[in-house]
Design a protein around this nucleic acid. Structure first.
Lengths: 227, 227
DNA sequence: GCACCCTTTTGTGTATACAATCAGAGGGCG
DNA sequence: CGCCCTCTGATTGTATACACAAAAGGGTGC
């Protein structure tokens, strides 16, 4: 009883692809060929197709009729909108999280932050960014708001694409500080502070992007699927 | 050049089914057989299946492996969460809408409200409720926040299921009043008031539900698809 | 030499066939 | 008489085949 790869469902493939996109191993604009995806995961086009459709519902890929699936390339407009939505949801959610914070949750967040640091030390920037996004999702989870968590999950996911396209400067260090400060506020059940910190953190994140010129990264093929 | 039904895409089917659910023509818990859907719309299971998957991503239907698709039955917990999310998003969005309000938008909203009244007069309660939900979406559209609009669209959609399950008293009249007051505030560009009105409107809506007992409406078959 | 059109090729859209799985009915056993 | 097991019918999961649309490539005419 070794393997657990017996059931390769479309959800699993969607997840796998999503992770690759989040870690910037697949660039925005990349073509995702149905056959290719199917071959990679050892399933037929039917299943691969379902996975791609799933990703398109999450706005991670763009499905163009008779053209195929492409990793989405959010516009500048969309970038602003996504952060606008996050600004409405996340600060108040951080406040809720502060109220519900448990010792266990503090530990989980600290461990998470530690992973982020490790990834950075190993120079796996993509992975670090991915973990950084998961940090926000973890906070929503602590707030015990599954629905809002799902929404934030999607927004963070799209943020990952936005960062891939409009990145300007390394914000890794201040990122960590921001997350660190957040953990402190949460651990002390200081909802007010947590809300404020989250609000500013999101503004910093937005400010670290260059949304002046509409970057075009045609995005080449993808051979980044090493599992 | 009469027909426009040449291309029955899965999106169209998903839309059609979604409308039926929103208007309470299909009850929560109803089984949505792939073959049946396919026959009704004159397509193969492949397309019907894609439509159902799409609806499941919107959380309108519940896809159970090897069991099939069922119209979702949100739990009491989920009901609270959905309205929690709406409370975070919609009031501030109403404020934005007030700032961007145009004469044209006012007209659109008034016409919308009028439709709602017509539906009520014709005793088409389901349709009235559906329109009432669209009203909220229209406000998000006026705020020119496509992303938030999409999120609200989903939340309103799920609210429709929640109302179908946990309805307590007729709130139709106060609904209209609330929407009317909102239009006034928006027309006067009074963001502050619009935000407050929306907040209270959502609280009223939530209060009109009976979320104490976990209703179980097994939901019979569906022959409600008269197009 | 360049541009345009036709052919070829690749890839998606859809239908259908087959395999796997589950719910329910019926019969056998305790 | 009730419980459990098995068999059957129905329905979903997956693969494959074919139809068609769009891109790629080469050839010809200007």
């Amino acid at each position: 009883m070794d393997g657990e790869e017996a059931t390769i469902t479309s959800d699993r493939i969607a997840h796998e692809l999503a992770d690759a996109i989040h870690e910037h191993r697949i660039a925005p604009g990349s073509k995702l060929n149905e056959d290719e995806v199917g071959v990679i995961f050892g399933v037929s086009r039917t299943v691969a197709r379902a996975a791609l459709q799933s990703l398109s519902h999450q706005r991670l890929v763009d499905l163009r009729r008779n053209r195929g699936a492409f990793v989405a390339q959010p516009s500048v407009r969309e970038a602003h909108e996504v952060f606008e939505a996050r600004a409405l949801l996340e600060p108040r959610t951080a406040r809720s999280a502060a109220e519900r914070m448990t010792d266990d949750a503090v530990l989980r967040l600290r461990r998470h932050l530690e992973d982020e640091h490790s990834a950075l030390r190993e120079d796996r920037l993509g992975r670090a960014l991915h973990l950084s996004g998961l940090f926000h999702i973890e906070i929503a989870r602590i707030a015990e708001q599954t629905t809002i968590e799902e929404i934030i999950k999607q927004l963070v996911s799209r943020s990952s694409l936005i960062i891939a396209l409009y990145w300007r400067r390394k914000l890794a260090v201040c990122e960590s500080h921001a997350h660190n400060a957040l953990i402190s506020a949460l651990a002390q059940h200081d909802g007010e502070l947590a809300e404020e910190l989250m609000k500013n953190h999101l503004l910093d994140l937005l400010a670290s992007l260059d949304l002046s010129n509409p970057v075009r990264t045609p995005g080449p093929l993808k051979e980044a699927l090493r599992r």
